[in-house]
Simulated scan of single mutants.
Amino acid sequence: MDKFTVLEGVAAPMRIVNVDTDKIIPKQYLKTIKRTGLGTGLFSEMRYDDAGNERPDFVLNQPGYRNAKVLVAGDNFGCGSSREHAPWALLDFGIRCVISTSFADIFYNNCFKNGILPIVVTPEQIELLFDDAERGANATLTIDLEAQQIKGPDGGTISFEVDPFRKHCLLNGLDDVGLTMAKKPAIDRYEATAATSRPWA
């Protein structure tokens, strides 16, 4: 998992509440267990028409937001079924941070496990961020995880809270496997001791 330290990039505004995981990545894309290639299916029912053509009014199809790294979203983002493909699709598209006033619990947890930082802000703060994001390619936000701050294009800052353990994992690029491997010396010592004390096992 890539480390998350400071992220600077265009923020795309999505003023839609209750965006569920089926909207994020529809069910027809769930046949794979690969984490790559899902970016094309991200928000596909909103991004494309029935003929597969891009809808020009959808935010991520607009020139200023095609390379967005941050998503500023409406309340209750990531609700619905517990598919891990949702953060995979966001990450494959290039989104490393999602900011909202609330998230569904399972989606929120899955984001941290896949290198995406979900940030919860107040309704007043989200409006400020929507205003920033609606500037198109000039809507650059800087997310400093160590300082726990969001810096807007005009230099204004918003502080946010994050669980210390999850912060540690993101800063160091540690997913569940990485956390286990960090304890490899202790695991190796245990296995060596077990092999000596129980050679029949």
Rank of each mutant, 00 (worst) to 15 (best):
G64R: 04
G64Y: 00
G64P: 01
Y65E: 02
Y65N: 03
R66T: 06
N67F: 01
N67V: 00
N67H: 04
A68S: 03
A68M: 01
A68Y: 02
K69I: 02
K69M: 07
L71C: 12
L71D: 09
A73I: 07
A73C: 14
A73N: 14
G74W: 05
D75Q: 14
G80C: 10
G80T: 12
R83G: 12
R83P: 08
R83D: 05
E84Q: 14
P87L: 14
W88S: 10
A89P: 02
L91S: 12
L91E: 05
D92T: 09
D92W: 00
F93Q: 10
G94E: 08
G94M: 07
G94P: 08
I95P: 06
I95C: 15
I95M: 15
R96E: 15
C97A: 13
V98S: 13
V98I: 15
I99F: 08
S100T: 10
S100V: 03
S100K: 10
T101Y: 02
S102W: 09
F103W: 05
F103E: 10
A104G: 14
A104K: 02
D105F: 01
D105R: 11
D105I: 04
D105K: 09
I106D: 11
Y108P: 07
N109M: 06
N109K: 03
N110S: 06
N110D: 05
F112C: 03
K113P: 00
K113Q: 05
I116Y: 00
V120E: 11
V120A: 07
E124T: 08
E127M: 11
L128N: 12
L129W: 07
D131Q: 12
D131V: 04
A133V: 07
E134N: 15
R135A: 15
A137I: 15
N138W: 02
A139H: 08
T140D: 09
D144C: 14
L145N: 08
L145Q: 11
Q149H: 08
Q149L: 15
I150F: 14
K151N: 14
K151Q: 15
P153H: 15
D154M: 04
D154A: 11
G155H: 09
G156T: 08
G156P: 00
I158S: 06
S159T: 09
D163P: 00
D163Y: 02
F165H: 11
R166P: 00
L170N: 12
L170K: 09
L170D: 12
